[in-house]
Simulated assay, not measured.
Amino acid sequence: MNKQKILKTLRTEHFIKVANKGDWFEDGAVIYAREIRENIFLLFVIVKDVNIENIQALIAHFDSFQSIGRKEPIQVMFYLSIKEKEDLHYFEKYLKVANN
């Protein structure tokens, strides 16, 4: 799975691109979010580093959708960081589970 396929999947699964205006995520991070329960959000964050592209998946509790990308979450319930290309199969499985 490559970055373009990931972005296409996120868009088709009704994730909304969120502006990163806070300091919790690194500068240049691209955030996609979808509410899965009241004020509980599934986030995919793509961080561009000089050497590698890092994808992070989170389930987190925020005050509201508008808090994402501006404030730290109230609670992080799940976190997965993918830095190696070999680890993308976990990401693909997680995307499939999240859709069910």
Rank of each mutant, 00 (worst) to 15 (best):
F62L: 06
I46T: 08
K48H: 14
A33H: 02
S64Q: 09
K3H: 07
H89A: 01
L43V: 01
K83M: 02
E72P: 10
M1Y: 01
T12D: 13
V30E: 11
L58T: 01
F25M: 00
L43M: 13
G22K: 05
A29I: 04
F65I: 03
Y90N: 12
V76N: 06
V18G: 02
E86H: 05
E26D: 12
H89N: 05
R11Q: 15
P73R: 08
E35Y: 02
S64N: 15
K8V: 02
K21R: 15
N99Q: 15
A98G: 03
Q66A: 15
F78Q: 05
E35M: 12
T12N: 14
A98W: 07
L42A: 07
K71T: 07
V18D: 04
K71Y: 13
K17W: 03
I68R: 04
I59E: 11
N99E: 15
F91T: 08
V30K: 08
F65R: 13
Y32G: 02
R34S: 12
N20R: 09
K21V: 11
A19H: 11
V47R: 03
K5I: 04
Y90Q: 13
I82F: 01
T12L: 08
S64E: 13
Q56I: 12
F44R: 00
L95C: 06
K85C: 01
R11N: 10
D27T: 12
K85M: 10
Q66E: 15
F78Y: 14
K5A: 08
P73F: 03
K85W: 03
K48Q: 15
Q56G: 08
T12E: 04
D63T: 02
E26G: 10
K21D: 07
E86G: 00
I52G: 01
A19W: 00
L42M: 09
F25Q: 05
